[in-house]
Design a protein around this nucleic acid. Structure first.
Lengths: 251, 251
DNA sequence: CGGTCCCTTGACAGCCGTCAACTACCGTGG
DNA sequence: CCACGGTAGTTGACGGCTGTCAAGGGACCG
């Protein structure tokens, strides 16, 4: 498990910089204690809770969500394996949103002090974590654009593109195939659409041959075509290895 | 001007923590050089640019925005006096969005190294800046909720509540009154609504007595009523002085 | 005084939500 | 073996919120 965590971390942050074995070990060491499992469809953190630790997601899918008083719910982000959530969050008195699982999740709970220690000792790791935080913010802006300007078809296509590329970044795809454990209700809450309209939109994407979605498996026969339908611009994921300037020389 | 910057900084971060005179001076000193002015309706940074510096907004209004290829435009955030933008941004190779002015803007351009120096030397300042970054992220999540779940009336009311409270936080309101230099087209681009529908929505808010909007001045006769109409929950602005635990003892 | 920007209003259309019913699937238990 | 219930997906009918198109008015400015 430590090995696979190391691998996950290498893939995740390898999208930004090449971490040395020592760097990777430092991150993996954070996950030594505090491994926790959560069942599907349960809350990990609730709005109003006091933040206590950061979390590194190791397996499974979760989401950040916000609710209105009358029950309307908006998923504002998905959390996938390799995602680190809430750097510096302990500065806030209480959470303004909740985090809930979609499917069973394994994550590592990390004390703020431990992260600080590792970031102080490993400059490249520090930069990689800050990069992760910047990309998270960029995704949130892109979602704002998605909800504000895109049509239903574009929104759903965009969501699939983003999820696929993020999963591919951590080695969780096979060719054009990936897992997609979301219900259509989840997709609706993420895109601001009703489940009925999600259903129609998914079928439109199917009939255009842009996706094959059966069970919990998504296949994208032609990623460029799906991106085109979505008006997807990959720049916000910042997968450009800018971090090469910070790459280790050790390998 | 240095004095007024000091005052602005004190108000802005005073919402989180009480900075010592030395802390405030340290921030103000960052703005000594690199003061720049921008005309109304011009770009400060463009998508694709290489990030070079952070910016502390001293006066005027600006916005972050993203565009789609066909010209659709989404404002994803407003930048008001006291806002600091893009901590750590230099880790990214290029901007994924643009920043443009609404009205003439004065800002201080700050070199990454200078910020780093101040944050290293002043722990409370560092925490205040990280808090600012967390609040920015929280606002982006709230906008996601706004666009995904709220009706046109709720969205516009919510926008007005947020802008008013943010301005009040830096002392730019008088009673229930504040400046609102946005055109209805701007409001539309921020809320994902057409200008025509913004117009109708604003008039509905007017006829309900929730706002008085004339010229570039917004009056909110009953903030609680407007918040109620918007379904506004202030928690995401994190104005709870959690930072009191980090407050200076110097006064 | 013409031009431009911004606001306003009306008519009409369409995207998407709501409501409702139905199917498929699956695990449980009688 | 089948009944049963719950979840997820699907489909049709209908309505409404919001967009589009178009035109006009007011304020400001060169």
């Amino acid at each position: 498990m430590s090995l696979s965590t190391n691998d996950l971390v290498a893939r995740k942050f390898g999208q930004f910089t090449r971490l040395s074995p020592g760097d990777r070990l430092a991150i993996s060491s954070l996950t030594g204690e505090g491994i926790r499992q959560f069942a599907a469809r349960t809350d990990i953190v609730r709005e109003g809770d006091t933040p206590t630790c950061l979390r590194l997601f190791l397996s499974g899918w979760a989401c950040r969500y916000k609710m209105l008083e009358d029950g309307r719910r908006q998923i504002v982000a998905f959390l996938l394996p390799g995602d680190l959530c809430d750097l510096n969050i302990f500065l806030l008195r209480e959470m303004d949103h909740s985090i809930g699982t979609i499917v069973p999740v394994t994550l590592a709970e990390i004390a703020p002090a431990a992260i600080e220690r590792v970031m102080d000792a490993h400059a490249r790791v520090a930069k990689a974590l800050l990069w992760e935080q910047l990309v998270t913010a960029a995704m949130q802006r892109e979602w704002t654009l998605n909800l504000g300007q895109r049509s239903a078809l574009e929104r759903v296509a965009h969501l699939f593109c983003e999820l696929f590329l993020r999963l591919r970044g951590v080695g969780l795809t096979e060719g054009g195939r990936c897992e997609l454990p979301l219900t259509q209700a989840d997709m609706g809450e993420a895109t601001g659409l009703s489940t009925v309209h999600i259903n129609r939109t998914v079928q439109e994407l199917r009939s255009r041959g842009l996706i094959v979605l059966r069970g919990k498996e998504l296949v994208i026969p032609d990623l460029a075509a799906l991106q085109d339908a979505a008006g997807f611009n990959v720049n916000y994921l910042h997968l450009d290895r800018e971090g090469r300037q910070f790459d280790t020389n050790e390998g």
